[in-house]
Amino acid sequence: MAVRVEAPVHETGSGATSRALVLSAVGVVFGDIGTSPLYAFKEASHAAHHGGLSPNVVLGILSLILWALIVVISIKYCIFILRADNRGEGGIIALLALLGVRRVQAGSWRMYLTVMELVGTALLYADGTITPAISVLSAVEGLTVDAPGFGPYVVPITVAILAVLFSVQRMGSGWIGGIFGPFMLVWFAVLGLLGILSILAAPGCWRQSAPPMQSATS
Protein backbone atom coordinates (compact mmCIF):
# COMPACT_ATOMS: atom_id res chain seq x y z
CA MET A 1 0.00 0.00 0.00
CA ALA A 2 1.49 3.26 -1.09
CA VAL A 3 1.69 6.01 1.45
CA ARG A 4 1.55 9.54 0.24
CA VAL A 5 3.78 11.91 2.11
CA GLU A 6 3.00 15.57 1.71
CA ALA A 7 5.67 18.18 2.03
CA PRO A 8 5.29 20.40 5.05
CA VAL A 9 3.73 23.74 4.42
CA HIS A 10 5.67 26.68 5.79
CA GLU A 11 3.53 29.63 6.68
CA THR A 12 4.96 32.96 5.82
CA GLY A 13 4.44 35.93 8.04
CA SER A 14 2.35 38.84 6.93
CA GLY A 15 3.81 42.15 5.90
CA ALA A 16 2.64 43.74 9.13
CA THR A 17 4.40 41.05 11.18
CA SER A 18 7.61 41.50 9.22
CA ARG A 19 7.52 45.25 9.72
CA ALA A 20 6.95 44.78 13.44
CA LEU A 21 9.94 42.43 13.67
CA VAL A 22 12.12 44.88 11.78
CA LEU A 23 11.03 47.68 14.10
CA SER A 24 11.82 45.52 17.14
CA ALA A 25 15.23 44.69 15.71
CA VAL A 26 15.93 48.40 15.28
CA GLY A 27 15.10 48.97 18.94
CA VAL A 28 17.04 46.01 20.34
CA VAL A 29 19.88 45.14 17.97
CA PHE A 30 20.80 48.43 16.34
CA GLY A 31 20.08 50.61 19.35
CA ASP A 32 23.58 49.94 20.67
CA ILE A 33 25.21 51.13 17.46
CA GLY A 34 22.86 54.08 17.11
CA THR A 35 23.59 55.46 20.56
CA SER A 36 27.37 55.12 20.28
CA PRO A 37 27.80 58.61 18.74
CA LEU A 38 26.56 60.02 22.05
CA TYR A 39 29.83 59.21 23.76
CA ALA A 40 32.32 57.83 21.21
CA PHE A 41 33.14 61.11 19.51
CA LYS A 42 33.00 63.04 22.77
CA GLU A 43 35.42 60.74 24.58
CA ALA A 44 37.80 60.61 21.62
CA SER A 45 37.81 64.40 21.40
CA HIS A 46 38.39 64.69 25.14
CA ALA A 47 41.37 62.31 24.95
CA ALA A 48 42.90 64.25 22.06
CA HIS A 49 42.25 67.64 23.66
CA HIS A 50 45.48 67.48 25.67
CA GLY A 51 47.50 67.93 22.50
CA GLY A 52 45.25 70.64 21.11
CA LEU A 53 41.92 70.04 19.40
CA SER A 54 42.64 71.21 15.86
CA PRO A 55 40.49 70.61 12.75
CA ASN A 56 42.90 67.88 11.66
CA VAL A 57 42.41 66.05 14.96
CA VAL A 58 38.62 66.24 14.60
CA LEU A 59 38.80 64.96 11.03
CA GLY A 60 41.13 62.18 12.13
CA ILE A 61 38.68 61.06 14.81
CA LEU A 62 35.84 61.21 12.28
CA SER A 63 37.83 59.10 9.83
CA LEU A 64 38.64 56.48 12.48
CA ILE A 65 34.99 56.16 13.53
CA LEU A 66 33.77 56.05 9.92
CA TRP A 67 36.15 53.32 8.79
CA ALA A 68 35.73 51.35 12.01
CA LEU A 69 31.99 51.20 11.35
CA ILE A 70 32.56 50.22 7.72
CA VAL A 71 35.02 47.45 8.54
CA VAL A 72 33.26 46.05 11.62
CA ILE A 73 29.67 46.18 10.37
CA SER A 74 29.85 45.93 6.59
CA ILE A 75 32.69 43.42 6.40
CA LYS A 76 32.84 41.52 9.69
CA TYR A 77 29.13 41.18 10.40
CA CYS A 78 27.56 41.18 6.94
CA ILE A 79 30.12 38.88 5.31
CA PHE A 80 31.22 36.57 8.13
CA ILE A 81 29.06 36.73 11.25
CA LEU A 82 25.67 36.53 9.51
CA ARG A 83 26.79 33.37 7.69
CA ALA A 84 27.64 31.59 10.93
CA ASP A 85 24.52 30.40 12.70
CA ASN A 86 23.26 27.60 14.91
CA ARG A 87 19.96 26.46 13.39
CA GLY A 88 19.08 30.00 12.48
CA GLU A 89 20.24 31.54 15.74
CA GLY A 90 23.26 33.79 15.67
CA GLY A 91 25.56 35.38 18.16
CA ILE A 92 28.61 34.18 19.97
CA ILE A 93 26.62 32.30 22.63
CA ALA A 94 24.69 30.34 20.00
CA LEU A 95 27.92 29.50 18.18
CA LEU A 96 29.49 28.32 21.43
CA ALA A 97 26.96 25.48 21.52
CA LEU A 98 28.25 24.19 18.18
CA LEU A 99 31.68 23.42 19.62
CA GLY A 100 30.38 20.85 22.09
CA VAL A 101 32.25 22.13 25.12
CA ARG A 102 31.83 18.89 27.07
CA ARG A 103 33.53 16.91 24.30
CA VAL A 104 36.52 19.22 23.98
CA GLN A 105 39.85 17.50 24.58
CA ALA A 106 42.87 19.27 26.00
CA GLY A 107 45.28 20.44 23.34
CA SER A 108 42.80 20.08 20.47
CA TRP A 109 41.82 22.84 18.09
CA ARG A 110 38.37 22.85 19.65
CA MET A 111 39.92 23.82 22.97
CA TYR A 112 41.51 26.94 21.50
CA LEU A 113 38.27 27.87 19.74
CA THR A 114 36.39 27.35 22.98
CA VAL A 115 38.77 29.65 24.84
CA MET A 116 38.29 32.35 22.20
CA GLU A 117 34.52 31.88 22.36
CA LEU A 118 34.55 32.23 26.15
CA VAL A 119 36.64 35.39 25.94
CA GLY A 120 34.23 36.79 23.35
CA THR A 121 31.26 35.88 25.54
CA ALA A 122 32.87 37.65 28.50
CA LEU A 123 33.38 40.75 26.36
CA LEU A 124 29.74 40.55 25.26
CA TYR A 125 28.52 40.49 28.86
CA ALA A 126 30.87 43.34 29.76
CA ASP A 127 29.61 45.41 26.84
CA GLY A 128 26.01 44.75 27.83
CA THR A 129 26.79 45.90 31.35
CA ILE A 130 28.63 49.16 30.71
CA THR A 131 27.01 50.34 27.46
CA PRO A 132 23.58 51.23 28.92
CA ALA A 133 25.19 53.20 31.74
CA ILE A 134 27.52 55.09 29.41
CA SER A 135 24.77 55.80 26.85
CA VAL A 136 22.25 57.09 29.38
CA LEU A 137 24.87 59.09 31.28
CA SER A 138 26.10 60.73 28.07
CA ALA A 139 22.54 61.55 27.02
CA VAL A 140 21.68 63.13 30.37
CA GLU A 141 24.97 65.05 30.38
CA GLY A 142 23.79 66.71 27.19
CA LEU A 143 21.28 68.66 29.28
CA THR A 144 24.14 70.57 30.89
CA VAL A 145 24.99 72.19 27.56
CA ASP A 146 21.95 74.47 27.79
CA ALA A 147 21.58 74.28 31.57
CA PRO A 148 24.98 74.14 33.33
CA GLY A 149 23.31 74.23 36.72
CA PHE A 150 21.80 70.85 35.96
CA GLY A 151 25.16 69.15 36.60
CA PRO A 152 24.53 67.89 40.17
CA TYR A 153 21.39 66.09 39.02
CA VAL A 154 23.00 64.17 36.13
CA VAL A 155 23.97 61.08 38.13
CA PRO A 156 20.68 60.75 40.10
CA ILE A 157 18.63 61.09 36.92
CA THR A 158 20.84 58.53 35.18
CA VAL A 159 20.42 56.06 38.04
CA ALA A 160 16.64 56.54 37.99
CA ILE A 161 16.43 55.97 34.23
CA LEU A 162 18.60 52.86 34.41
CA ALA A 163 16.51 51.48 37.29
CA VAL A 164 13.36 51.86 35.20
CA LEU A 165 14.99 50.33 32.12
CA PHE A 166 16.31 47.29 33.96
CA SER A 167 13.01 46.80 35.78
CA VAL A 168 11.18 46.27 32.48
CA GLN A 169 13.72 43.77 31.15
CA ARG A 170 11.50 40.96 32.41
CA MET A 171 8.91 41.94 29.78
CA GLY A 172 11.13 40.42 27.10
CA SER A 173 13.14 41.77 24.20
CA GLY A 174 10.09 41.76 21.90
CA TRP A 175 8.17 44.15 24.13
CA ILE A 176 11.21 46.36 24.68
CA GLY A 177 11.97 46.45 20.97
CA GLY A 178 8.40 47.43 20.19
CA ILE A 179 8.62 50.32 22.65
CA PHE A 180 12.06 51.63 21.73
CA GLY A 181 11.91 50.78 18.02
CA PRO A 182 9.98 53.92 17.00
CA PHE A 183 12.29 56.11 19.09
CA MET A 184 15.38 54.58 17.50
CA LEU A 185 13.83 54.98 14.04
CA VAL A 186 13.35 58.69 14.67
CA TRP A 187 16.86 58.87 16.14
CA PHE A 188 18.41 57.30 13.04
CA ALA A 189 16.40 59.61 10.79
CA VAL A 190 17.62 62.65 12.73
CA LEU A 191 21.22 61.42 12.62
CA GLY A 192 20.99 60.86 8.87
CA LEU A 193 19.40 64.25 8.23
CA LEU A 194 21.92 66.11 10.37
CA GLY A 195 24.74 64.19 8.73
CA ILE A 196 23.58 65.09 5.22
CA LEU A 197 23.14 68.75 6.16
CA SER A 198 26.59 68.83 7.77
CA ILE A 199 28.23 67.26 4.72
CA LEU A 200 26.50 69.76 2.43
CA ALA A 201 27.64 72.62 4.67
CA ALA A 202 31.25 71.38 4.85
CA PRO A 203 31.95 68.89 2.05
CA GLY A 204 35.65 69.04 2.80
CA CYS A 205 35.20 66.96 5.95
CA TRP A 206 33.79 64.09 3.89
CA ARG A 207 36.64 64.18 1.38
CA GLN A 208 39.31 64.36 4.06
CA SER A 209 37.80 61.59 6.18
CA ALA A 210 37.72 59.17 3.23
CA PRO A 211 41.34 58.20 2.41
CA PRO A 212 40.57 56.53 -0.97
CA MET A 213 38.64 59.58 -2.14
CA GLN A 214 41.34 61.91 -0.85
CA SER A 215 44.10 60.04 -2.66
CA ALA A 216 42.05 59.95 -5.84
CA THR A 217 41.44 63.69 -5.82
CA SER A 218 44.96 64.68 -4.79
Rank of each mutant, 00 (worst) to 15 (best):
A40R: 05
G149N: 07
I81L: 12
C205L: 14
L64T: 04
E89A: 12
V155H: 10
A106R: 13
S198G: 06
A189W: 05
A210T: 08
H50D: 11
I179L: 15
L62T: 05
A210D: 00
P152M: 03
Y112Q: 09
A94F: 10
L185F: 13
E141K: 10
V9Q: 03
L118C: 07
P132Y: 12
G60T: 02
V119S: 08
Y77G: 00
Y125V: 11
A16H: 09
F180Q: 09
S14T: 15
A48K: 01
P148G: 06
A94K: 02
H50I: 04
T131G: 01
P55Q: 06
V22M: 05
G51L: 08
G88S: 06
A16I: 02
T114F: 05
Y39Q: 05
H50W: 11
R103T: 12
G142H: 14
I134Q: 04
V136L: 10
L64W: 04
A40M: 11
A40L: 14
G13E: 14
I92F: 03
L53K: 03
P211N: 01
G204Y: 00
I73L: 09
L99Y: 04
A147L: 10
S209C: 08
L113R: 14
L69G: 01
V164L: 12
L200Q: 09
V3E: 12
I134D: 02
T17E: 15
I33L: 13
E141I: 02
N86Q: 01
E11H: 07
G60D: 04
V71I: 09
S198V: 01
A97V: 12
P182V: 05
I75S: 01
P8C: 03
S14M: 09
P8M: 08
A163W: 15
L66Y: 01
S135Y: 00
P148E: 05
S63L: 04
V155R: 14
V22T: 14
T131Y: 13
L98R: 15
W175F: 12
E117N: 10
N86S: 09
V22R: 12
F80D: 00
I199C: 03
F166M: 10
A133K: 01
G60V: 03
A84H: 08
A84W: 05
A97C: 06
L194E: 09
S138E: 02
W109H: 09
A48V: 06
I179W: 15
L185W: 04
M184Y: 14
G31A: 08
P212A: 00
P203K: 03
T121E: 03
M213F: 08
G13A: 11
A216H: 00
A106F: 06
H49A: 13
T131N: 09
I196M: 14
V72W: 04
S218L: 02
G107I: 00
L82C: 10
I81K: 12
G13M: 14
A147P: 01
G174Y: 07
V29T: 12
A160R: 10
T35I: 09
W109R: 12
I130V: 13
R4D: 02
A189Q: 03
G31H: 00
V136Q: 10
S198L: 08
A44Y: 11
D32C: 05
W206Y: 07
